[in-house]
Design a protein around this nucleic acid. Sequence first.
RNA 1: GGCCCGGUGGUCAAGCGGCUAAGACACCGCCCUUUCACGGCGGUAACACGGGUUCGAUUCCCGUCCGGGUCACCA
Length: 499
Amino acid sequence: MDMDKSWFDEMEARIPHGEVRTRFAPSPTGYMHVGNLRTALYTYLIARHAGGKFILRIEDTDQGRLVADAVDVVYATMRRCGLDWDEGPDVGGPVGPYIQTERRDFYGRYARLLVEKGLAYYCFCGKAESAEDSGNFERVEDPCRALAPEEVRARLDAGEPYVIRQRIPEGSTTFHDAVYGDITVDNAELDDQILLKSDGLPTYNFANVVDDHLMGITHVVRGAEYLSSAPKYNLLYEAFGWEIPTYVHCASVMFNDPATGAVRKMSKRMGDPSYQDLVAQGYLSQAVVNYVALLGWAPHGALAEQEFFTMDQLIGAFEIEGISKSPSAFDMDKLNYFNAAYLRDLPPEEFAREAEPWIRRAVKNPAYDAAAIAALLQARCEKLSDIPEKVDFFDAPPEYGADLFTNKKSKTNPEVSLEMLKQAYPVLSQLGDWSQEGIHGALVGLAERLGVKNATLMWPLRIAAAGKAVTPGGAVEICRILGKEETLRRMELGMAKLQ
RNA sequence: GGCCCGGUGGUCAAGCGGCUAAGACACCGCCCUUUCACGGCGGUAACACGGGUUCGAUUCCCGUCCGGGUCACCA
């Protein structure tokens, strides 16, 4: 007992005070929900805005759901998103360990402490049917609540499996949330919550409170799905006599299914995109972070109209008051808009580096300059996965009909187009300077001599070169990349279609 | 079903008792232009409903409706 007391004192002594400390505490599942990413971001921003500490803690108490290497996915995601942590499993810190299974004996000690105080009790009832399965939401009092101490001792000695449950007092509980304000709940709504499971590991609710306290967490940020558990957390803090942190509950991120039009909470299980899915489709992490920051939070005052933020700007602008109470729908269109803007803002070389693998999926011919193609693409794609279908014509133009040569705005039809191609062919075949400027100058000069709009000449040429009505870049850019020989060959094919 | 939380255009949202109710995405026009895109200009479109409180409600209160969450030895 004395040893125990000094152990508890030591744990208390480690707790840092006097700084804002927040934590992101994912359970490693192998991917990151968009909603979780947003929670991580807000948690990070609150700490950084206040010049405090951001802590990473891994919650792996659900042995049934463990996924190998999933912790690495957490690390990688957070690094790519710019969420650097001050304390965590890999970097250590004053209040470790930072993985819950490595803290497993802590929870038992604290649970038994509560039993000694008479605020929790051993229960030997075995697993109960869940309310969901039974369809019965009635609350029943646990008979073990009133077990005599001698009997508890005897059953414990007999090695009977048990859980430890908190004794919820009568009355009501009021807690304060920084986003939602004061909320009062009748304790009759609350179960005698299980603190320690029969496998000896803590429940999420219990581990959270113990760890948040032991790690000196000042602001507990989490999804609004935990709002109705908050009174239970308060009751635990009160039972231990611990200071209650500031709660920051964030409304859910919904997903507007484009297929069905249904709106629902975003869920990987329903096939909604995770952060990993988005990255695989060629979304930039900064774009995702920027978009997600604004999904449920808005800056105040002079910044109210700003929508593009660097991480540093977010840190400066982020205030808890700006967090929204109502759920918000993840909108692919708007993410596309942000991503397109971020892609355009990339230095051309960097964009080319990002784009090249996607270009090479469709363009196998090494003679075609990927960097030159990338330059055409930069202002024309919302995400990198848009690229292959836009550039597939370089290797070989698709089968196309003569009708493509007709375009009202360019004043072309099959006859005009044939004439234009016939005129352009000798000019291009004699052209020595096969550069953007060279080709452009030659064609513009020709159009002028013929007395036609530039478009009247360019349209048929582009159709012949690409075989598509819509292409990244115009006739000049495409011909330049194709090279003289291939351009002329495709012009011949085009003319043949028009004969 | 009980309890909790929400409700400003299709979406994200500003607003925090008095405004012609911002801005962005999407959509639609026009301009620019070698197609498309980028860029520029303009347009359509909202305070869920009913009661109060108030000189005055999108803003405060109540009810209705609608939406979400939660009632596990999951987190």
